[in-house]
Write a protein that binds this DNA or RNA. Structure first.
Lengths: 171, 171
DNA sequence: ATATTTATGTCAACTACTTTACAAAAAAGC
DNA sequence: GCTTTTTTGTAAAGTAGTTGACATAAATAT
């Protein structure tokens, strides 16, 4: 049976494995270099992503932990930890949702807003270096492939019985 | 000054941010779903990547911790932890490098080899689902973009004074 | 109205990631 | 040959990720 595998299957297998591995490497490196780039602000890339979500007008009144977790595609439990550290540093506040006593609405504090603003110089400098050699067209294409992949990840997650993490419903 | 930013710059900024965010989401989801897919084998995706490297003929005689860390683009410290857990489970062994007493050559145990072999069915099934809608051509292109990005990450890492993690020198 | 099920955020345990630090070996410099 | 610098793997501390668990509120079913 193994002898019948044609070369296109071997090529495909090699590509899928390399794609996954490259994703792993790139994401880790993005986290490392990005966090370092924002070292002065004491904000990790994960916290950066959260700040970036909260500054959006759409969530001016706050966003529930569960919704934010869905947007980020991380577990509620993990997000609780990250938010606690951000709250301890005065970047976000947790407010009881008047419509549901169990729910907490996460909002940026004035200090959080200022931090976001202060970070912009380093952020744009970082992206400039990170995306060298990638045109607008390249990024559009890359995004398309990652979107397809993300959708597949969502689909597999559902099959596996995982907690729903549908960012498309929140974005 | 902000008023002078043209729409193509705004588009570009939006794309770079979305690309980074999508990378983050996809990598996390890949880790989550991949680890779940291999649940039966009690192997995480990170350990899967390590097993995948060690089965290569090139490292039949073992690979040093530092080299493996460079290949994976993770810190030596982190790899030490992952390898310790794998060693505790009998998947890998650490052998003193006869040419350098400080160095440890990491090799697969017979059990590690068997585990790798046992995993293949789940691995191919997982990839089949994960890469749905992505042709060979798509993957080749996606890989190209991720390669450019990875190179940029390496470049930034060097600028930041980080420990050299050059996988291209090991691959 | 009451009982059952589901949803919400958080706790605890474990894995993976970074950084700083360091003992000891090896390499480089003098 | 001796001193200095670099290299190697690991320890410790902190952040981020997962899962299972749970108290409590809210929604659903009877």
């Amino acid at each position: 049976m193994a002898q019948d595998i044609d070369t296109s299957t071997l090529l495909y297998d090699g590509l899928t494995n390399r794609f996954a591995f490259r994703l792993y490497q790139c994401a880790n490196m993005l986290n490392k270099t990005g966090t370092k780039a924002l070292e002065r602000h004491q904000v990790t890339t994960q916290q950066w992503a959260i700040l970036g979500a909260l500054v959006r007008e759409r969530w001016a009144q706050g966003i529930a932990v569960g919704d934010l977790a869905s947007l980020l595609m991380v577990s509620r439990q993990n997000l609780t930890g990250v938010l606690s550290r951000m709250e301890a540093r005065g970047l976000v506040e947790r407010a009881i949702d008047p419509e549901d006593n169990r729910s907490r609405l996460i909002k940026l504090t004035p200090e959080g807003w200022k931090r976001w603003s202060d970070m912009q110089s380093e952020i744009s400098g970082f992206y400039k270096e990170a995306m060298k050699g990638l045109s607008v067209n390249d990024l559009v294409h890359a995004l398309h492939y990652l979107d397809v992949f993300r959708r597949n990840m969502r689909s597999i997650e559902e099959q596996q019985g995982g907690e729903a993490s549908d960012p498309a419903a929140i974005e």
